Simulated assay, not measured.
Amino acid sequence: MSTKNRDELDHAVNRRRFLGVAAGTTAAAIAGTAGAAGATAQPRGAGHGRPAVPRGNLGIQLYTLRDQIGTAGFAKVFDALERYGYDQVEYAGYTQGNGPLTLPQLRRLARDHGLRGIGSHVAYHVGDPAGYSFATSLEQVLDDAEALDLPYVGTWDGPFRYGTTVDGVRRASAEFNAYGAAAHRRGLRFYQHNHGNEFGFCSDDPTVRIYDLMLAETDPDLVFMEMDIYWAYTGVHRFSVRPDGTPAPFDPLDYVTAAPRRFPLFHVKDGEHDAASQDGYHMTDVGDGDIDYQRFIGTVTGGRYRKYHNWLVERDDAVNPDTNPAGSLSTARRSATHLHHLRA
């Protein structure tokens, strides 16, 4: 396994361990110091014009705040998110570290803080130690999404269960279609969240980009996409040339403008260019990096589907004190501030 594939596998495993031993800022930080920590400069892209992110469409993937949920619990986290001006939350597990909580209780708790559950990340086929995944627990996954009144339920896993050949990606895509059909029957929508490797090429046909094949093989009425914008741009860095050396440039934004209703959800994650990184970037809070979100979000929300798209802050390493010493709550606050001020 390559270093890059191992890194992405580690990322997926960390999601499955979403609420293990929590580290980072304590519950006291939520109640007091987090709101004041780290002064925020005037965001880039601020100024005249309408808000780039429509009111009601700003959310956060709770994986970003897994340390806080693991220590202080959902109530304290939701209180902070309400103060920061978030409208939505995307779940990455339904348990907390400070006592059990039923799904109806969790739904009410979010509602009481002015938050709507927009979606949830669930394993595609491996699952947590209890085997919770689309492949092993489909009806339970859908039951849970219904209990939380989620319009979307999806997976962070790529279409790699059967390898990276054309046939392997087609087999995985067929399973995504089946999950999408099952979700549709329950009034839900299934979605897939990308990392970087989806923009690579099939191992037995380097003329075929995996993401393109997955889009072509899945039913657009049943399988929707949550584009992680940061990971898509790492794909540009890594896969703009085919294995045989021929150019294969692409712009992630073009996928969205070509099929805007296919992409109801986005992960808004920023990164600075980094020549030492295989990805070409390292993660930052939204607004501190080099991804042109004024262009990206402004283009998407400038069309007829302005209120259709949902913008969810995420930073995978927000709990890592080495790469993010200000902590995950600071990431949530500073990213929301930037996006609230962004104009298009």
Rank of each mutant, 00 (worst) to 15 (best):
A22N: 03
Y191W: 13
Y132A: 11
D112Y: 05
G196T: 14
N98Q: 12
G280I: 04
E146W: 01
I60D: 13
G235Y: 04
Y124W: 10
L103D: 10
G32Q: 07
D212K: 09
A28F: 11
G59Q: 09
F250L: 05
Y293L: 06
T337P: 00
D10W: 07
V126Y: 06
A34G: 13
L19M: 12
I118Q: 13
P264L: 02
G303T: 02
G70C: 07
Y152S: 00
T26W: 06
D143R: 13
V141P: 03
Y211G: 03
L222M: 05
G127I: 10
Y124N: 13
P249E: 12
A130R: 15
L253N: 07
K269T: 01
I30Y: 13
A130V: 02
D290Q: 10
S137L: 01
N177T: 00
H309W: 11
N57G: 06
D279A: 11
V256K: 08
R261D: 05
S173W: 12
M227W: 02
A130M: 10
R315D: 08
E272G: 01
G24P: 02
L103F: 12
Y86C: 04
R334S: 15
G280Q: 11
Y255T: 02
Y308F: 15
G289H: 12
K4C: 00
E272N: 13
P104Q: 03
I229S: 05
L62K: 08
R261L: 14
L342P: 14
F224C: 00
A28H: 07
D112Q: 14
F266Q: 01
L142S: 01
R295N: 06
D228H: 03
R66G: 07
R295H: 12
A318L: 02
S328Q: 15
G245A: 09
Q61S: 13
V286I: 02
R304I: 04
R15W: 04
Q42E: 14
T207K: 09
D317R: 14
K307R: 15
M227R: 00
H113C: 00
R17G: 15
P104K: 01
A232V: 00
T155E: 10
R238Y: 04
T26L: 09
L253E: 08
S330M: 02
T301Y: 13
F199Y: 15
A39L: 11
E175F: 10
A178Y: 11
T64M: 05
I60A: 07
Y63V: 01
L213I: 06
P43K: 10
V169F: 09
A332M: 08
A75Y: 08
E175Y: 08
R186W: 03
T284Y: 05
R343E: 01
P220W: 06
A23F: 09
V319Q: 12
Y132N: 09
Y233I: 00
V236W: 09
T331R: 07
A123F: 10
Y191E: 05
L103W: 12
T301N: 15
A174C: 05
R44H: 07
E217C: 01
R315T: 04
A80K: 03
A276P: 02
I291Q: 11
A123H: 12
R189H: 14
A41E: 14
G158H: 05
L215M: 09
A259T: 03
Y308H: 14
Y211N: 09
R334M: 04
F239E: 02
